[in-house]
């Protein structure tokens, strides 16, 4: 009986090396979850594979084939620069999420390569904001090279230095210098350096690339703050929320979900959650401060302000 077990072990390791060479997700011998069949008494065990991090959101994990890849390249895209708040937020959340999932003694950091034109248009990263968002400041390195090839060199050097768990490469739109070959090369580099490369395309169209998956991030309304006794307070801006449209998943079996998934990011516990349909909100209707007769005349404007519905003619914003 021992030889059989030995042969079985050898076969398994052979299969493992082949799978790793082809970059396919590794399947242990555990039974495949039969999610379609809801038979009672049947234990559905989530697919456990070591280079995937589950988001904990049923729909998203299933769509991405088990969750986030631990090493390899993925892309997060925002349709227009106005939504860069949401895309940057999502990228940073994913980075923070991965950082908390890596073994502590590895002590690897996050490397963010900023893109100068995006920074001019939508603002620089703010240390206090990053800390509020859940990132550890002493494990974050930031660079803002002037040219794209410098950025690529930095990203590649970061990957080969094995000092980073997540590298976020910010790209403005669809630059020609970043075509399929560069994408391919970065993807391979990321895969064999056990590091997740997040391509953050700000205000760009959908473009093919050798990414494992590609998401389009767009803003979603935030959750509500909770009072000490648990009731949410209406009108307050709680934890950040993003709505994702999954555009491409390279190795997944199941079909892509049609409509977007909404995620809430709990910066304190560094967890993604589904936005719970809130309990009846407890909030005193914020009455206007001066119970006097409506808004006083604005000092520098012409006549009484019309009802808010109509579009007012404003002089040009400076």
């Amino acid at each position: 009986m021992a030889e059989a077990a030995l042969a079985q072990g050898k076969l398994l390791s052979l299969r493992e090396t082949i799978a790793r060479m082809e970059g396919k997700p590794l399947h242990r011998l555990e039974p495949v979850p039969d999610s379609a069949v809801g038979r009672p008494g049947d234990v559905s065990v989530a697919v456990v594979n070591h280079d995937r991090i589950a988001f904990g959101i049923e729909a998203l994990d299933a769509a991405l084939g088990g969750g986030l890849v631990r090493s390899g390249m993925a892309e997060i895209r925002s349709g227009s620069l106005r939504d860069s708040g949401a895309s940057t937020g999502l990228a940073l959340s994913v980075a923070a999420f991965v950082m908390t999932r890596q073994e502590p003694q590895q002590g690897r950091a996050v490397f963010f390569v900023g893109e100068p034109s995006v920074c001019r248009e939508t603002g620089e990263l703010l240390a206090e904001g990053l800390e509020d968002h859940g990132l550890a400041l002493d494990r974050l390195v930031y660079a803002r090279p002037r040219k794209l090839d410098e950025a690529l060199w930095l990203a590649e050097a970061a990957l080969s230095s094995r000092a980073f768990a997540v590298v976020v490469l910010e790209i403005a739109g669809n630059p020609a210098r970043f075509g399929l070959s560069e994408s391919r090369r970065l993807s391979l580099k990321a895969r064999d350096s056990d590091c997740l490369l997040l391509l953050l395309r700000q205000g760009g169209r959908e473009e093919a690339g050798s990414t494992i998956f590609r998401l389009e991030a767009s803003p979603a309304s935030s959750g509500l703050h909770l009072l000490p006794d648990g009731t949410p307070l209406r009108g307050t801006i709680g934890s950040a929320a993003f709505s994702l449209a999954i555009e491409k998943v390279s190795a997944s079996a199941s079909p892509l979900p049609s409509q977007g998934i909404v995620l809430e990011w709990n910066a304190h516990e560094r967890l993604f959650t589904c936005p719970s349909d809130a309990l009846p909100a407890f909030c005193p209707e914020p009455r206007p401060a001066n119970p006097g007769a409506g808004l006083p005349l604005p000092a520098d404007r012409s006549d009484r302000p019309q009802t808010l519905g109509a579009v007012l003619a404003f002089d040009r914003a400076s």
Partner: peptide, 11 residues
Amino acid sequence: RPIRLFRYPER
């Protein structure tokens, strides 16, 4: 605090 801050606030 926000995650992105404009170097010069925009009017």
